[in-house]
């Protein structure tokens, strides 16, 4: 499988480590009143879609960046690759 890195171009998937659902970048507030429940959902509840799926990949053997990859779980076709940093910033997070 080839992942088309937004900065570095097409790279073999063996340069990357797969983490899981892209929602993992939305870490709940640990100080909130309902933190226990929020963290339970954050850690354990996953959708398992047959089709388009957004997931986190880490370019371990490359530039060490985190990516949000949109992949079709039925065909493995990758329709979009974004820097996780940009995705978080678009949501108003980070600096």
């Amino acid at each position: 499988m080839i992942i088309n890195h937004p900065l570095l171009g097409p790279r073999d998937a063996n340069e990357f480590i797969h983490l899981g659902d892209a929602s993992l970048i939305n870490r709940p507030d640990g100080m909130a009143d309902d933190a226990a429940e929020k963290f339970h959902d954050y850690l354990y509840l996953r959708d398992n879609p047959a089709g388009e799926y957004r997931e986190l990949w880490y370019h371990d053997a490359g530039d060490r960046s985190w990516l949000v990859v949109t992949r079709n779980t039925l065909t493995h076709e990758i329709s979009s690759v974004e820097m996780a940093r940009d995705v978080a910033r678009k949501q108003g997070r980070s600096k």
Binding site: R11, A61, G62, D63
Partner: peptide
């Protein structure tokens, strides 16, 4: 330049 792996070595 590129960072990659060769024989599993970074």
């Amino acid at each position: 330049m590129a960072r990659t792996t060769m024989e599993h070595m970074g």
